[in-house]
Write a protein that binds this DNA or RNA. Structure first.
Length: 597
RNA sequence: GGCCCCGUGGUGUAGCGGAUAAACAUGCCACCCUGUCACGGUGGAGAUCGGGGGUUCGAAUCCCCCCGGGGUCGCCA
């Protein structure tokens, strides 16, 4: 080793020790006579002192050192002179008096600050990701991710799970997301696909008798990115045999509870995890992944305003839409521009607009409220009783601001979900030290596609509730699934289900989804065949590792917890991928490039 | 594919139709400095304002197109 200790590990217990350190120059303070250098390695920072009276030679070399030079120093750990300790540094009680040093490798001036946590344009960070990752924030995130994955492995090992790798080159299943395809050299015109998730593979492992499987699995989906979506991402994939829904959910609750308590002991969480049905979540929050750190629940006002003459409400209802709202407590004093911001927020999502209704604090109480005190475009079309009824339903009092949206049901839900998050944030109700996990259960099994065909709400292997199976023949929309999602702070961090494990029921579902016998055989023959050989009842879950780490790290995007993420346009700026390939490579793969119009 | 935001010395920002074609902080370079830790002091270099086109007597500033980055709708079984 080129070093005897890590920079960050030194403390007063090392006083008197001869140490050799190696790392990067974080900062240099050259006093002419004395030179101080903050030497950084993975474990932290320690001050090293170059004194010409100790070593003239070392002092001379140190005067050449600049930011991010890779250097090695040997010397003695010494207590800092009284009054010069630095409480901001973990190692601030000591310093290393350098007797010998060498520059292992100089560095150009880096394109952005390594030693400061300032905002830098993300594309620049990604181009120089290896420098970006040197920064404290990124080092912390990488470490946290490691801790999370390590925790998961230990936890599941103790529960009797075994980790099994599954192929990355597998078969295309076009009914899901868009596949990443890999051409085959040995089979002209044929392709592998990268797994969107190891779903079918883990089910086959259950048929294989593994009983408890997990994998930290890379998954690939060729769809547009988001703050919480990348073309490749990592799942904790997990499957168990001979279990019921509660078994999975209890396992998850224990996993996340102990994870947070171990890794983020300064953070709180809500125990036990609430269970919400899908219908209830949609009703109360307008989304199936509500942020449960705060209330601000959405209420349906359709019945109250049905008789009003307000054209905004009338036309929405005439079109089969809804009128819903939320209450922003204490926000009646919002300025015109603040209200405009909220209005713009929902309009950008496609809503017609936002009806704002501040209940003047000056009224004192709802009983003393008059219509004149409600500064809203809707006020003159509503009776005082209607306003009071709306306020009552939203749990509002004077001084509160009512936010109401009318329109197509899904649009209203989406806009109010967004508004609710925004107000939760503005009112500082989204405590970053609280993790509000919850389970969403009782999802519908199916939904209608745009073409009016049945498609799975999640995937076609999800089992319907036993009592709902007969409904598959009559009213498929009423069939509920043995599916569950786990959410945290408004983020979907995982989903799973009990699976279909008989060929008969699986075939029935495929038929309902519109597959012909030929298609079923071609696409899912392997699975159905396996089910003929004693498939156990089984189920599991897939959790988004990137999202979990993002939440624990308090980051806004999963890119901050991925070492080498891709841009929104799915490019890797460090490697400049994707890139053209040589004609010979294409020929070997039996490919030619189509002319794009 | 749609909508929205951003792009000014290395970095982060200011400037948003005119006065010297750019200001501030930091970084960088040189010199000075033996207790600093965001060290300090003095001096210096460094941007034709993402690219192209247009409007104008005059454009970093207004308009159009393109490129890059981000947010989002669609999409994500």
């Amino acid at each position: 080793m080129l070093k005897s200790h890590s920079c960050g590990e030194l403390n007063k217990n090392h006083i008197g020790a001869k140490v050799t350190l190696a790392g990067w120059v974080d900062r240099r303070r050259d006093h002419g006579g004395l030179i101080f250098i903050d030497l950084r390695d993975r474990e932290g920072i320690v001050q090293v002192v170059f004194n010409p009276e100790t070593s003239k030679q070392s002092h001379k070399i140190a005067s050449e050192m600049r930011s991010e030079y890779v250097v090695r120093v040997s010397g003695e750990v010494a207590p800092r002179p009284p009054g010069t300790e630095n409480p901001k540094l973990v190692t601030g009680e000591i310093e290393v008096i350098v007797q010998d040093t060498e520059i292992l490798n100089p560095s150009k001036t880096p394109p952005f600050y390594i030693s400061e946590d300032t905002e830098v344009e993300e594309s620049l960070r990604l181009r120089y990701r290896y420098l970006d990752l040197r920064r404290a924030r990124m080092r912390k995130n990488l470490l946290l991710r490691h801790q999370v994955v390590r925790f998961i492995r230990h936890f599941l090992d103790a529960k009797g799970f075994i980790e099994i790798e599954t192929p990355i080159l597998i078969k295309s299943t076009p009914e899901g997301a868009r596949d990443y395809l890999v051409p085959s050299r040995l089979y002209p015109g044929k392709f592998y696909a990268l797994p969107q998730s190891p779903q079918q593979l883990k089910q086959l492992l259950m048929v294989a008798g593994v009983e408890k499987y997990y994998q930290i699995a890379r998954c690939f989906r060729d769809e547009d990115t988001r703050a919480d979506r990348q073309p490749e991402f990592t799942q904790l994939d997990l499957e168990m045999s001979f279990i019921e829904e509660e078994d999975v959910l209890n396992l998850l609750e224990e996993l996340f509870t102990s994870m947070v308590e171990t890794i983020k002991p300064d953070c709180g969480l809500i125990k036990p995890f609430p269970w919400l049905t899908y219908a209830e979540a949609m009703e109360r929050y307008g989304t199936d992944k509500p942020d449960l750190r705060f209330g601000l629940e959405v209420k349906d006002l359709t019945d109250i305003v049905a008789q009003s003459d307000f054209s905004v409400f009338r036309s929405a209802l005439a079109g089969g839409g809804k009128v819903k709202g939320i209450c922003a407590p204490g926000c009646a004093g919002y300025s015109r521009s603040q209200l405009n911001e909220l209005n713009k927020l929902v309009q950008d999502l496609g809503a017609e607009g936002l009806v704002t209704m501040p209940l003047a604090a000056s009224a004192g109480s709802l009983d003393d409220l008059t219509l004149e005190m409600v500064r809203s475009v809707a006020a003159k079309f509503l009776t005082l009783d209607q306003v009071r009824e709306i306020a009552k339903r939203l749990g509002a009092d004077t001084g509160d601001l009512l936010l109401i949206i009318a329109g197509k049901s899904e649009l209203v839900d989406m806009a109010l979900d967004e508004l609710r998050r925004e107000m939760g944030h503005r009112l500082k109700l989204d405590d970053p030290h609280l993790f509000a996990f919850a389970f969403i259960v009782d999802f519908p099994l199916l939904k209608r596609s745009e073409e009016g065909l049945w498609e799975p709400m999640h995937h076609p292997f999800t089992a319907p509730r036993d009592e709902d199976v007969p409904l598959l023949d009559t009213t498929p929309e009423k069939v509920q699934a043995k599916h569950y999602d786990i959410i945290c702070n408004g983020c979907e961090i995982g989903g799973g289900s009990l699976r279909i494990y008989t060929a008969e029921l699986q075939r029935k579902i495929f038929k309902l989804l519109g597959y012909s016998d030929g298609e079923i055989k071609e696409r899912f023959g392997h699975l159905l065949k396996a089910f003929d050989y004693g498939a156990p009842p089984h189920g599991g879950v897939a959790l988004g590792i990137d999202r979990i780490v993002m939440l624990l790290a308090g980051e806004e995007t999963i890119r901050e917890v991925i070492a080498f993420p891709k841009t929104q346009e799915a490019a890797d700026l460090t490697f400049n991928a994707p890139s053209p390939v040589a004609e010979e490579q294409l020929a070997e793969l039996h490919l030619y490039l189509r002319e794009e119009r």
